[in-house]
Computed example of a mutant assay.
Amino acid sequence: MDSLVRAQTDEHVLRALMRRPRLTRAELAAEIGISKPTAGESVRRLTERGLVADTGERTPGGRGRGRVGSYYALTPEVGVALAVTIAPAGVTAETIDVYGDTTARAVRRIDRPARPSQVAAALRDAAAEVCAAAGRPARLAVVGAADPVDRATGRLVHLPDSPFLVGELDPVAILAPLEVVVDNDVNWAALAEPARPRDFAYLYLGEGLGCAIVNDGEVRRGHGGLAGEIAHVLTAGPGGRAAPFIEIFGELGLRREGSTAIDVERVLASDGATREAIVAAVAGVVAAVVALADPREVVVGGSWGPGLIDGIRAATGRMPRQVPLRAAAAGGEPVLAGVRAEALDRLRAAVIKAYS
């Protein structure tokens, strides 16, 4: 029982030092709600394990201001997490410390069309660079990829008409021996949405097409990890003819030359009948998602989806089943933001599990 109590106390001390970079033993006691001697004993144990160290900083003391206190902080031995995104533009790798700060960043560009060997080399090089620059051990990696992901193996899955075909890529093997978590980029972008509801669909409309289904606060990935792959959903095509969603952009001449990737600039510059056809196709996909997933709302993200939000909203307003539809709120790098958040949670959990 005593060992269990000590382990729980050490966990509380570690978590407190993850929330605040430095604390005295008295501040730890107040933060956690334990006695000062108990806090002091926990600091001693964690110091002996090399996880906590005296920073050398002292509180003001003397002349009626009480005893001088020493500040303690986590040591570099608690390590960092690797956060990675793999996209048509390239590989971005960062190291994240237990405070959620980015300690190193590297970017490797990728040629088009992407080749698995080049992407693998870019991933390996970027990860090695940031891990070396961080100067502390990497404990795990979280990866977001612009391709479907096999949930059992973490390998990228080759699907027809995907604009970023690197289905032979195996991030788990490349980043071994780290523990590696891999998921689709759209799922990570959905999880980065601020103040997201517990039930919603995140529609990604960019060079590629995707959808994340969040139910009861959890992303639903399906049996093989392919839930939300909307490219081949049948929807309204030009002239009212039913067609797979991705094929409509080929018929409208909106694909990049020699690729199935959607030409974002031309989509945003479209008007008249072309824009009406795009909006009608998106509305048909939204109708299918609403019918099958019953989301509370639909969030539209990606590089061109939010730019057509008014037309999409007007078209979906004529559907029999309606849900609120809005543009994604997460700006900047939403995929990387979602990956970072997961990497931070897993890093903190790994430190607690290994040392408390």
Rank of each mutant, 00 (worst) to 15 (best):
P137E: 12
A141K: 09
L156D: 08
V166E: 03
L156H: 08
G144M: 03
H158V: 06
G154Y: 03
P163K: 09
R151A: 05
L165P: 14
G135S: 10
P160R: 14
H158L: 14
F164R: 07
F164Y: 14
A141H: 08
P163M: 10
L156W: 07
G135V: 13
A134S: 14
D161G: 00
S162N: 10
S162W: 06
R136P: 02
A134N: 06
D147H: 08
S162T: 12
T153E: 03
A146D: 13
L159P: 05
G167S: 13
L140A: 03
L140K: 04
E168F: 06
L140D: 02
A133T: 08
V143R: 05
V149M: 11
G154S: 05
G154T: 02
P163N: 10
F164L: 13
G167N: 11
A133E: 14
P137M: 08
R151G: 01
R151S: 07
G167C: 14
A145W: 05
R155P: 09
A152N: 09
R139C: 10
V149C: 07
T153A: 00
A146C: 00
L140F: 04
T153S: 15
D147G: 01
V142I: 13
D161L: 11
A132V: 03
D147N: 14
L140C: 00
V149D: 06
A138G: 02
E168H: 04
L156Q: 11
A138I: 04
P137D: 09
G167K: 13
L165H: 04
A145C: 12
A138N: 01
D147A: 14
D161K: 15
V143Q: 03
D147E: 13
A152R: 15
P148S: 10
A145H: 06
G154W: 01
R151Y: 01
F164W: 01
G144E: 00
G144Y: 06
V149S: 07
P148V: 06
P148C: 09
R151Q: 02
D147M: 14
A138E: 00
G144Q: 00
R155Y: 08
R155K: 15
A141E: 10
V157Q: 07
G154I: 01
F164G: 08
T153D: 03
V166T: 05
A145P: 03
P163W: 09
V149P: 10
V149G: 07
R136L: 04
A134V: 06
A133G: 03
T153I: 05
V143A: 06
V143P: 05
A146W: 03
D161H: 14
T153C: 04
H158F: 13
A133D: 10
G154P: 01
E168P: 00
F164Q: 08
P148K: 07
